Amino acid sequence: MKNIKEMISNLNNELVAIRQKLHSEPELSWEEYETTNYVATYLDELGIPYRRTVPTGIIAELEGGKPGKMVALRADMDALSVYEIREDIPYRSKTEGKMHACGHDAHTAMLLIAAKTLSEVKDDIEGTVRFIFQPAEEVASGAKAMVEQGVMRDVDNVFGIHIWSQIDTGKVQCNKGPAFASADIFKVTFKGRGGHAAMPHDAIDAVMIASTFALNVQTVVSRTVNPLRPAVLTIGKMEVGTRFNVIAEDAILEGTVRCFDKEVRLHIEEQIRHYANQVALMYGGTAEVVYEYGTQAVNNDIESASLVERLTVDHFGPDAYHIDDPTMGGEDFSFYLDEAPGCFALVGSGNTEKDTRWAHHNGHFNIDEDGLRIGAELYVQYALNWLSENK
């Protein structure tokens, strides 16, 4: 284990090259065919057996030289429908309108180098390491599909990493307990009765219904949810009306709900339906609500997260462990935690001098590649230590 840091340091140029290649060739959710092929070819060269999942993704397995349990390491692979604004980087996306704007290119690169490192010390591994190269995290369906295809079968513990631009390079965060919120989507369709703008008394104005709902639905959180149980309700899209002198007949609103508590999640859904129906009734219209459950909350196993804290301090220094609040962002890593204990860590890549503090999903997004080594080593150290300590 003492040689792991040196081994990964020696592979740093390869690590950066893999990340930059993947960055320049982004593929959207469920379209990661070439990325999957690249990962497969790399694993072939390492002699690590794997199987492909449908339609994209890979599950690989490295059996150690000593018997033991199984730990899984996960990286996601998909990109976003984001236009890359920066033109000052040689590895800029080759496909306009598609971009690795969330760091999944880095995750895949780090896990490949971790697999290479672990394959070189496999005789010392006390158990089995499973590598999960997951598609479609950005649409919150990849992890669930892989679970359905058996990715968590026989897994005793699971660990994942997300590169994080809001944390300084060199830092690691791994909350004990809640880390990421559940992320749901709702759509409300109001129907009024269209008419001439000059004769509002003959119509039912969908603009009024939608506006009243948009203003008042915020009180679901501020007045019906315990303030000690955090939640966010955001309406991000509203479509209403067709012309300046036509009273709108239809209005469509779309939004998202984020929270950490299952009871709060159910309550907010119920209240959205109640508010929509009551507001529509007040104006004489009707409402239809479609509520879709997305990712669940990521609640890190305390023992697993404590291992990450200890490894961070031991291998990267006492100041490397970063403590902060959970994020209201969503992560489908939660579906793995339904099957086995584990945790999800954030590895910092924010560096003002290198202009890498842009928000995830922004067209300027980039990472400080000095953080890649930390992520790769953390994957390796977590697998080795968890297996050796849980015989």
Rank of each mutant, 00 (worst) to 15 (best):
352 T>V: 10
1 M>C: 05
327 T>H: 03
103 G>W: 00
271 Q>G: 00
65 G>Y: 11
145 A>M: 07
213 F>A: 01
256 T>P: 07
280 A>P: 01
129 V>S: 09
87 E>A: 06
304 S>F: 07
253 L>P: 01
73 L>W: 14
73 L>E: 12
174 C>Q: 03
295 T>F: 03
150 G>T: 09
138 E>A: 08
331 E>L: 04
288 E>G: 00
386 W>K: 07
173 Q>A: 15
154 D>T: 14
298 V>C: 05
242 T>L: 15
5 K>I: 11
384 L>Q: 12
243 R>N: 13
291 Y>V: 04
34 E>H: 12
326 P>L: 05
109 A>P: 11
93 S>K: 11
149 Q>T: 10
135 P>V: 10
308 V>H: 05
65 G>A: 10
167 I>F: 13
65 G>I: 08
376 A>H: 03
375 G>N: 09
133 F>W: 08
75 A>M: 09
34 E>Y: 03
253 L>E: 02
288 E>A: 11
308 V>D: 07
70 M>E: 15
34 E>P: 04
369 E>K: 11
30 W>A: 00
56 T>S: 06
14 E>V: 04
181 A>L: 01
49 P>F: 15
356 T>M: 10
216 N>H: 04
19 R>A: 06
235 I>T: 03
209 I>G: 01
201 H>C: 00
121 V>R: 09
183 A>G: 09
154 D>G: 06
222 S>T: 12
279 V>C: 01
217 V>A: 12
353 E>F: 09
145 A>E: 10
334 S>F: 08
351 N>G: 04
255 G>L: 04
42 Y>V: 13
100 H>F: 06
116 K>I: 04
15 L>P: 11
279 V>I: 13
207 V>W: 07
262 K>F: 07
178 P>E: 05
254 E>S: 15
331 E>H: 02
50 Y>K: 12
252 I>P: 00
161 I>W: 01
141 S>D: 13
153 R>F: 02
49 P>I: 12
302 I>D: 08
258 R>H: 03
360 H>R: 06
159 F>T: 15
80 L>D: 06
87 E>K: 15
387 L>T: 13
86 R>Y: 11
332 D>C: 06
116 K>F: 05
70 M>Y: 05
143 A>L: 08
169 T>I: 11
127 G>W: 08
183 A>K: 02
360 H>E: 06
223 R>F: 07
319 D>G: 06
109 A>N: 10
126 E>M: 13
181 A>N: 03
231 A>D: 03
193 R>A: 08
355 D>G: 08
334 S>R: 06
214 A>T: 01
198 A>L: 00
313 V>D: 05
265 R>A: 02
287 A>I: 02
227 P>H: 10
7 M>E: 08
350 G>F: 09
4 I>P: 02
296 Q>L: 14
7 M>K: 11
